[in-house]
Amino acid sequence: MGSGSSLACDISLNSILPKHLQDRYQNPSLIRRILAESKTIAMVGLSSDGQRPSYFVASYLKYEGYRIIPVNPKAKEILGEKAYPDVRSIPHPIDLVEVFRRPEECDEIVQQAIEKKAKTVWFQLRIVNEHAAQAAEAAGLDVVMDKCVKMEHGRYNGSLHWVGMNTEIITARKARRLF
């Protein structure tokens, strides 16, 4: 067993979005392209506590080769990277803004992501704000909603499979790693 490279079996597990929003914000091809093309990820709401879910996601992604920029006004440094109070304060370009904050904070975060010329905003699992998503789309950004970056990465690179989870990937093509 290697990594996934083909069609996703569309049984749409584990989403609270209605079907039409799943098609729009959880498109497997879009998610795979984002994971393949993004290099620098600003994680808004990354905790400095090593046992918090956001820290699990960040340490996973860092090991997988992404540069993680912590956005947390209470932290100085997380996982060896300088932390910033907000997206606006980050002095260099970022590809993806990942949101670990409550839905009502998403509008402001999206505005900053647009200013920052990020390519994608990604709202973590169970974080849903359609208004913010539409604003990001109107500015030309890609949007993923109600999905976990770590789970999706593990799903498409094959590692989630090792722990018996249903990746929903069905293919007879030889495995190849895309990211």
């Binding site: 293919t171 007879a172 030889k174």
Partner: peptide, 13 residues
């Protein structure tokens, strides 16, 4: 039936 035969296995690289 397709999933009986294919789910969970991708021929290794």
């Amino acid at each position: 039936e397709t999933r009986m035969l294919h789910a969970g296995h991708i021929p290794d690289a």
